[in-house]
Design a protein around this nucleic acid. Structure first.
Lengths: 335, 335
DNA sequence: CTGAAAGCGCTTACAG
DNA sequence: CTGAAAGCGCTTACAG
């Protein structure tokens, strides 16, 4: 037996319209009628057909989550797992669903077309965009509501939520300098990602405030992975840093491995600070001092912004910067 | 301007039916006509409306991926990231999309209803089911096609793909015994997960084959997390194991931390073997000998099974067991 | 507060 | 190989 609006209507003795109103919480329904209909719905375990709803209303209550796969091995970073949890949880809370798109290069054209024109989703959350990616312009051109996780400097009309990367990095480096470290090195993120650039800017500002110049030998570019951090640290070692700010915990972990292999003690010879506060940070050897960013809240905030945007198209751009928190453990040599 | 089948039909000088056939690769279309229509489609960047398609055809080309959140902190295990990559990539290859459901307990009832009755998805992939979960029976009752990642022992009609956990574990433990280790301990997975039980069974079998009894003091239950492995190792230490088989790399990592704190050398005092071969395994201190399971292929296989199942409902149950591979590094003391 | 009816944009027998 | 037409299951003005 087919259970649809029609059937519920028949059994409740009302019209399809009324059942639809009950399902959609329309206030214009008599309280008694509402109860009667709801009872039937519960009895039959009725769930309105999503496709029919979308077709009639033009809304799907589905949000797309795009994670650029070009980012590659990076997806294994716990950052994404936590972000996805935040997004999924907020979607649940707002009665939406999440569709996942890992952008493999060879499928990108088709993906963009589907995102924009198939009507599968009401809006898009794009995570960790590369600066030169073609997705953002395509989304703007097609007026598809979207929110970036990670700010986008060039386009003023873009909505985003991000951690306050620059101030977070600044706090970490200022702390190392305050402890009397003289040669503070940094392993940066990739230069084509804003988070990499912003954390580097915080590093530079902290040096400047102390009247210190940026020594290019003490700056190595990483790729946000453990392996990248390891290699970058090996490049830094000959220049005798006595402290390190790594722009992610995974890179800090790689740096610790390189330091251990080179026989340098942490924090005695080299003080180390990371960024993210992933779950394993506290359990590294030694426990990692780091800049905690509210990853889960990045996800929930993105969902909330996006739903607002879908409900009120054309509203003013929204940019949210979430504060970070400096977490002191053993690796920096304080406490 | 609205771009739909009608519009494409008008511009190509054919009927809606024909455009629909072209879009769906129906062979019954004149080659010239097909080309003409395809050209118009490309020009207008036409993408058929997903909701209308689903409503008319009864298929959505969307697969649901359910990850029990009860599993909690476990989601941060790179295992899931790699599994999701495999699934997403296979879905792309088969022109399907993935909808993600992290099962938060409070939303579970609604989730199951949506999964089963909203028609949003054609089938479900369920990852790492707990043995007593209510989702599997619900899926069976409602005849929704589904595939488990991880086998399910009780229900004969269940389709699954899994790694050969028992033989993988057996190989690891047999190797430790062959190296002359006398007191091989194990940190198991949670007893309510099949993967935990299977790997434990492999451990026991390897002992038995050598005529060794199972010493309960050398068996500690973990929860597949780093923290759980750390605590389990602390419980094992007083019983002087000279080798350890940890049922996951994350737990092995925790065990290494506990061993380091206790001043035991690896592999000299205690040889250690893990399970999974996550990306960081090779970069632990010392590099971890482990049982590699083909996580990504678990994901792609699940997708392929599921799509077959959707296309041919009522076909015989499919069970796939993928072979593991023993990867020798430093932590076991061989080579 | 309620119902009849049009319409969302496709697919799919059916007839030719 | 092609087209006319019914139908998928909802939502939403509109009229009352």
């Amino acid at each position: 037996m087919k259970i649809n609006l029609e059937e519920i209507a028949r059994r409740s003795g009302v019209s399809r319209s009324t059942v639809s109103r009950v399902v959609n919480d329309d206030p214009n329904v008599n309280a008694g009628t509402r109860e009667r209909v709801k009872t039937v719905i519960r009895q039959l375990n009725f769930q309105p057909n999503a496709a029919a709803r979308s077709l009639a209303s033009g809304r799907t209550r589905v949000l797309g989550l795009v994670i650029p796969q070009g980012v590659g091995a990076l997806f294994a970073d716990p950052y994404f797992a936590i972000l996805i949890q935040g997004i999924a949880s907020a979607c649940n809370a707002h009665d939406h669903s999440v569709m996942l798109w890992l952008a493999e290069p060879e499928y990108e054209r088709r993906m963009i077309r589907q995102l924009l024109h198939s009507g599968m989703i009401d809006g898009v959350i794009v995570s960790s965009m590369l600066l030169d990616d073609s997705l953002v312009p395509a989304l703007i051109d097609n007026q598809k509501p979207f929110v970036l996780v990670g700010r986008h400097p060039s386009k003023p009309e873009v909505n985003y939520v991000d951690s306050d990367n620059e101030n977070g990095a600044w706090a970490a480096v200022a702390h190392l300098l305050r402890l009397g470290r003289q040669r503070v090195a940094t392993i940066t993120g990739p230069s084509n990602m804003v988070a990499g650039a912003d954390r580097r800017a915080g590093f530079v500002r902290a040096l400047r405030e102390r009247g210190l110049a940026l020594d290019p030998d003490l700056l190595a570019e990483g790729d946000f992975t453990e392996a990248g951090g390891y290699l970058a640290m090996q490049r830094l070692l000959p220049h005798k840093p006595d402290a390190l700010f790594a722009a992610s915990d995974m890179m800090a972990q790689g740096a610790l491995r390189a330091l251990r292999e080179a026989g340098r003690r942490v924090p005695e010879d080299v003080a180390v600070v990371g960024f993210d506060d992933i779950p394993t940070a506290a359990r590294l050897e030694p426990p990692l001092t780091t800049v905690r960013q509210p990853i889960q809240r990045l996800g929930t905030t993105a969902v909330e912004l996006l739903i607002e945007l879908i409900d009120q198209p054309g509203s003013a751009p929204r940019r949210v910067l979430l504060a970070t928190e400096f977490v002191i453990r053993k690796s920096c040599g304080a406490n």
